[in-house]
Write a protein that binds this DNA or RNA. Structure first.
Lengths: 216, 216
DNA sequence: TGACGCATACCGTCCGGTAGGTAAGTTTCC
DNA sequence: GGAAACTTACCTACCGGACGGTATGCGTCA
């Protein structure tokens, strides 16, 4: 993915007509840039000036669009969970068979985890790494949504256990956390220019996890 | 915890005799406290005043023992890798059979990951979460040591693959990262007062990962 | 003529780090 | 043995700069 250049408003050129961005585009740039920076340098390690610079605006200009640094973090966190909801949770929740559902959850989540790796900005990384930057109220909201996802995964494993389709002795909670850990880790090592494609990675990690829990 | 008053060196009192702490104790307190704070609030989110307050000293007093904030981070990172070396890498490297070695790596690493969870200070969490706080030179050192561990794990899986003891089609690199991810995640959810003991957790996670890759 | 989309200039606070001091303990040397 | 010289373990007070955030103004467009 080549880095898209922001429109040049520099001097010297014959007064290039600055294309007024359509409504909301500037906000989008801000949230994308903030997301990327939060992932790269952490929430506390990123200053509002950093974000402003990244979108070629002054800090005061940035504050025209956002209320506070914490609001930025919360909005990004919500966005990350929204994407998890629509890409992973909602499609999976519609599947009746728990084995099919488990496969769907794992593969979709791996795809989501990899789709935006560390260089780009996958907001889900922020959700798991930066709860401390949120106010207690906002943190509760995010933790609740994370809990809902964990419950889906744990519940699906629980159904499989009841049906006797899990390997003897596997603890459902430990297995669920192992899966989430393996998946969240992908964003830290997978690179789009690496040997494995995202689809292959999704297959591989999902296969290891499925083999790890399913009776054969 | 009641706030212990610093010995009053003001006028009037008959010169209270301060007990000299044994050599190195203060440094130990500082590194433990810094470790805990870096994990709880992140490196950038922790100020030197926070650390000083945690060990009941002034900031200038703290700087009597440490050179800089970055040196603190590097020392803690090295300490974390030292523990990984002695508890996981060295014992495992002495095992000839790759399957036994793999089991030893996974179980020892899980124990290490859980032994000090988020509230307490497992320096390994800092190693993986805060490379950005290090100078390029120090970062290279730490990344090199991390790479050595990955190579051990990947190499062990590779031996098993050559021996035909892995499930058909498992990619060694993806499997190694899946294992590390699942293990590192433990520090984020396992609690000493939870339902699963650390030993049970180690067994569970190691079992899922071993089942996930081994041919049966 | 507003409303929008910014910029200039600034605020108080906190940051990492330092200058310089002091009380007590330790070593050196007569 | 005892004084002098030095070291250790801190302290108070402060520095320049960066931080999150704001008051105010001004050009541009519908």
């Amino acid at each position: 993915m080549k880095p898209r250049q922001l429109p040049d408003r520099g001097t010297g050129e014959p007064a290039r007509r600055p294309v007024r961005p359509p409504l909301g585009e500037r906000e989008g740039q801000i949230y994308v840039a903030a997301s990327r920076l939060f992932i790269q340098k952490g929430f506390a390690g990123t200053s509002m000036s950093d974000i402003a610079e990244a979108v070629k605006i002054t800090k005061a200009g940035l504050y025209h669009f956002v209320d506070s640094k914490e609001e930025l973090l919360f909005t990004i966190s919500q966005f990350g969970m929204d994407r998890l909801d629509e890409q992973v949770i909602a499609p999976a929740a519609a599947i009746a068979d728990p084995l099919e559902r488990l496969e769907a959850i794992l593969k979709a989540h791996v795809q989501n985890a990899g789709r935006a790796s560390r260089e780009d900005g996958n907001p889900l990384t922020i959700v798991v790494d930066e709860p401390g930057g949120l106010t207690p109220e906002h943190r509760k909201v995010i933790e609740g949504r994370k809990r809902a996802y964990l419950d889906l995964l744990r519940g699906t494993l629980g159904e499989l256990e009841v049906q006797g389709r899990l390997t003897e002795g596997v603890d459902v909670t430990a297995a669920a956390f192992a899966a989430i850990g393996a998946i969240m880790w992908i964003g830290r090592w997978w690179r789009p220019d690496g040997r494995l494609s995202l689809e292959e990675t999704a297959e591989q990690v999902a296969a290891v996890l499925l083999n790890g829990v399913l009776r054969r």
